[in-house]
Nucleic acid binder design. Structure first.
Lengths: 335, 335
DNA sequence: CTGTTAGCGCTTTCAA
DNA sequence: TTGAAAGCGCTAACAG
């Protein structure tokens, strides 16, 4: 079933069918109706490949997502898609392996599918700075900053990680915690973790509190199991620690479970804070005290930045989105 | 950059470049090397649209996923993708809205992208039986049964829901529970919920226990918040209830949180069981007693069934995959 | 307003 | 082993 078949059945030329299908104005109402009727009758949908091949303008935005296991990214992508529904673009989700070089993959996706724009959900621009330079297609990184990547087609929208980490650290200090452990990503490779760490550290210093990175910083992947393992490591090395600052809700959940298993009560013996503000954080026992990343805001602004660049050739921007502090039940007030 | 450019730079014809790119044997070694060098030099990737348009055989398998919010489906899709990496197929994830008619959408995807096969992650074949009949492309539904759908290109692979529900119900009864509430999907529209309900009910009947569906069955979406609301409704209507059987871990998590808020201790006052066996279930406090769906097994068998049908024209099959009972901490042993 | 026609980039005959 | 050439289904420019 091709537009040729439709045209034959309608007794008109291919061009007319194409025009109707693409909502061009110069078709008579009766002709339009006749074509639409036949299209409907067969549930005809035109072949995307042919369409894209011919009209280079393919109206597709590719979403590159690193892994499907991150609850945060899933929610983010869902919201992006939801916003996209009202726009004349098609999305194409490409799931990358966690260890792929997303810039290289993006370059290939561009060659293969020629998308109009690219959205990186949760990418890590720091690791692949040079590779990003090759990408000519407008793109936006959401949930990470990319200020210092040399690519004038690249925008970024992220939560203000430093301020958020500061906010959480202040909360811990205000509640009487001075001996605080941190569970975060590898600082050498993740600027995201670095920003959160710097925010945390600045508050400690401001209050004249010491932080021994050797013993109090535990590296973990953003996962439940790594959070659990890191918590065990921290508490064993620091028996006097009263709180753990984690860089992700999943880490916090893992940590809380492990601490419980070791006989500690959260938050009475040890306070644990999250980061991200996943829906499920509010269903934990205790409810997680965490930082909510405003996913709707991130999705909206990211999309806007991308489309501004594509449609109106506006310069790229690097935006910070505010966050929300969620006072849960996982921080204990010490006197 | 097209194969024409490559051909020019290599001083050969288009056909030769195409042959090299597609690993056809009839190219001289030196020519192959020369072409490969140029392809490598520019990082050339051929245009997918043109390729697909020309060679109808496009080696793409579309994965239709309903929503991105289900942790279970995300894990499932991730595993399918992982298995697919070793195969000569490309996957194309299409995310559908929760209320889309997946059969109609699938038909459109087929028209648009002409995939070789279709994988439904978590679809609900019951609601759209007639629409499924239109799909000519080989497909498989994973995590749901489709025995009675009239489509001889449709396979299905799912957990043995009836047996799993029976197993869980037996566990509750063995632990002394007789007044058990159920939180599940709408029985009229979801055969999946129906199967789990039937499994549960058969055990109750076997033990001569009564079950008043009017008061003890609470309808909920497969979400945290609906689980919480349903739990509240059940406990209010049935003060003597000692256990709740839920049809999803997220429902159970929502229920436990709500019961805690209402002053009940889980499992001491009320036992709550899950279903699915999400990773996070094992990090809850208390750990969820649940049924683990073997996602790797589901992904593997589903893919095998689909590829057997595509590549070897084997007849479609409807398979049941075993499950695993996870003895958590959310069921209390009554005397 | 409508039909005809020239390719989009690629694969795959068919000749050489 | 290779190059030339025919189209895959569609859009858009052109002519009527």
């Amino acid at each position: 079933m091709t537009i040729k078949d439709i045209a034959r059945e309608c007794g008109c030329g291919l061009g007319t069918v194409s025009r109707v299908l693409n909502n061009h104005p110069d078709v008579s109402d009766q002709m339009r109706e006749r074509v639409l009727a036949v299209v409907d009758k067969y549930g005809f949908v035109s072949n995307q490949s042919a369409k894209m091949l011919r009209s280079q303008d393919n109206k597709t935005i590719a979403i590159l997502m690193k892994g499907t296991s991150s609850i945060l990214l899933n929610s983010l992508v869902e919201r992006i898609q939801k916003r996209m529904e009202h726009l004349p673009y098609t999305t194409n989700v490409v799931v990358l392996d966690e260890y792929d070089n997303e810039a290289k993959q993006a370059y290939m996706v561009c060659q293969k599918h020629r998308p109009l724009g690219l959205i990186f959900a949760g990418g890590n621009p720091d690791s692949y700075k040079e590779d990003f330079a090759n990408i000519q297609t407008p793109c936006v990184i959401i949930t990470n900053q990319a200020n210092d990547v040399q690519n004038n087609r690249l925008s970024s929208v992220s939560t203000d990680d430093i301020a958020a980490a500061q906010c959480m650290a202040e909360h811990l200090v205000a509640n009487g915690h001075t001996n605080i452990g941190v569970i975060g990503g590898d600082l050498a490779s993740s600027e995201l973790s670095q920003r959160r760490y710097n925010g945390f550290l600045s508050v400690m210093q401001k209050h004249g509190l010491s932080f021994n990175k050797e013993t109090l910083y535990a590296v973990a992947k953003y996962s439940l199991s790594d959070g659990a393992a890191a918590a065990e490591q921290l508490i064993k090395a620091n028996p006097d620690m009263t709180a753990i600052f984690t860089m992700a809700d999943v880490m916090a959940i893992g940590a809380i479970r492990k601490l419980s298993d070791m006989g500690y009560t959260v938050p009475k013996d040890i306070s644990v804070t999250g980061f991200d503000g996943l829906d499920i954080a509010d269903y934990m026992c205790p409810r997680l005290t965490t930082i909510r990343q405003l996913l709707n805001e991130l999705a909206e602004r990211g999309l806007d930045a991308l489309l501004d660049n594509i449609e109106r050739n506006k310069p790229c921007s690097h935006q910070l989105v505010p966050f929300e502090f969620i006072a849960g039940e996982s921080v204990y007030k010490r006197n």
